[in-house]
Structure formats: C-alpha cells, structure tokens
Amino acid sequence: MKNVLKILSLILIVTTVMISCKKDKDPATADFFVGTYNGSVSYNKDETSITNSEGKVTVSKVGDTYNFFFGSNIPDITGVKFEKSGDNTYVSIGSGLTGITIDANTLKMLVSKDGATWTADCTR
C-alpha cells in the first residue's frame, strides 16, 4: 500500500510541475493579427487614386513576414516585418514599409514606397 501511495504521489507531483511550468504564450506570437480588418483604405500613385470608405484589408502571415491584401484594385503590400511597440501592438520595420501599426483590433497604415502611398484606418 505504501508503494502505491508513493507512486501516486510521484505522479501527482510530476503532473503539477509539468502544468505549472507551461510557457505562457504571447497572443501576438500566435498569428493574432491574421484576419480581415474593415474601414477606410486608399491608394495613390501618379494619376491613379483609389479611395474606399468601406474597404477591407486581409492580413496573412508567411514565415516571419506579413502580407496585406486590399482588393478594390489596390496593389497588395507583401513581406512586411514587425517589432513590438507596446502591449500586443506592433509597428512595421524595414526599407519602404514603415508606417503600419497593428494590434488585435486595429490596423493603421500610412506607407509610401516607390512613389505610391497606401493608407488604412481599419478595425475588426
């Protein structure tokens, strides 16, 4: 009987240690921003000017970069990297792709690259 109690106690201790050592995961590292944001979007380049107050931006993640798909004949923005700026808020980094701030609920964008400008003020 003592051996059974020892084995059960050992199993209980091991289970408790395994549960308590579980690593907490930051929601932002779990593709928390992937999805569709709705709101005002625009694109300007040369003679082209597209504005949609009921637009949408679909965010996807491939590896460690994010892609932004606009629809409405607005060119997509791909290969964007982010760094943490606050509590689950991230800002874009990299050449020509700065100006994007994203969290679980909002997407704000003012990107200028190669003579083109994209803007977005969207929420989920």
Rank of each mutant, 00 (worst) to 15 (best):
C122E: 09
C21K: 13
I74G: 00
G96T: 09
S20L: 15
L110Y: 15
F82W: 11
V111G: 04
T101H: 04
K56F: 14
G115S: 14
C21G: 12
S112H: 10
S9M: 13
E83Y: 04
A28V: 15
T29F: 07
R124V: 13
L8K: 03
F82C: 12
G35L: 11
I100K: 10
K45A: 03
N105H: 08
I102N: 05
G55I: 07
I93A: 01
V91L: 06
N52V: 03
S112T: 15
E83T: 14
S92W: 12
V4Y: 07
T101K: 14
D76Y: 12
A104V: 03
D103W: 02
C122D: 10
T89I: 10
K113W: 06
V111W: 06
L97G: 02
L110F: 11
L10C: 12
D103K: 07
T106K: 10
T89G: 00
F32Q: 14
N73F: 03
A120D: 11
K56G: 03
L97R: 04
I50F: 08
T51Q: 11
N88A: 06
S40R: 02
G71N: 09
V111C: 04
L97E: 04
K23C: 00
T51F: 09
K45E: 03
Y66T: 09
E83D: 12
S9C: 09
E54S: 13
Y66W: 08
S53P: 02
P27A: 05
G94T: 04
M1Q: 00
D46H: 05
G115V: 12
G63E: 11
K6L: 13
I102V: 15
T78H: 00
